[in-house]
Design a protein around this nucleic acid. Structure first.
Length: 136
DNA sequence: GCCAACGTTGGC
DNA sequence: GCCAACGTTGGC
């Protein structure tokens, strides 16, 4: 099972909103690299939900409930979206500042390529973030 | 509010 | 096909 991270500006779509809905189509991604990562997502894969701009922290975990399909909001028909459902909140949010200071998390795309909005997370990175968030 | 990174557009 | 101009993202 693979792990990912999804960014959202809480002004536009927050974790609180995500938790209130059964599922959410992750539309609006217009970057090919991010789109390719969405195409790699499989049913049951999980992703961190990250608040960019405001908060700058990982707040929760979502599960992929529908694999990539054409993004209905994309007029060109080139881009895809997936459906995700909130799974659980982290017991404690993990901030970008903490990630930057953590030696095990230096290779994350979140740091290295700050504009990327959908990215894979390695097993080791996933475990480390779960660990420092006191979740489970 | 500023700026770095980076993607896209359009002139040549 | 190159590259300057411009727009967007997102951290600070």
């Amino acid at each position: 099972m693979a792990y990912f991270l999804l960014k959202s500006e809480p002004d536009a779509w927050s974790w609180q909103q995500q938790q209130k809905v059964k599922l959410d189509p992750w539309t609006g991604v217009r970057n090919h690299q991010a789109a390719n990562f969405m195409k790699a997502m499989r049913l049951g894969d999980t992703a961190f939900f990250y608040h960019s701009n405001i908060g700058k922290e990982i707040v929760g975990i979502v599960e992929v409930v529908r694999e990539a399909y054409p993004d209905p909001t994309d007029e060109t028909g080139k881009f895809v979206c997936v459906n995700v459902a909130a799974k659980e909140s982290l017991a404690r949010p993990v901030t970008l500042a903490e990630i930057k200071l953590n030696k095990k998390l230096q290779e994350m795309h979140l740091i290295r390529q700050s504009r990327l909005s959908v990215m894979p997370v390695t097993d080791a990175q996933w475990r480390e973030i779960i660990r420092i968030s006191n979740t489970k």
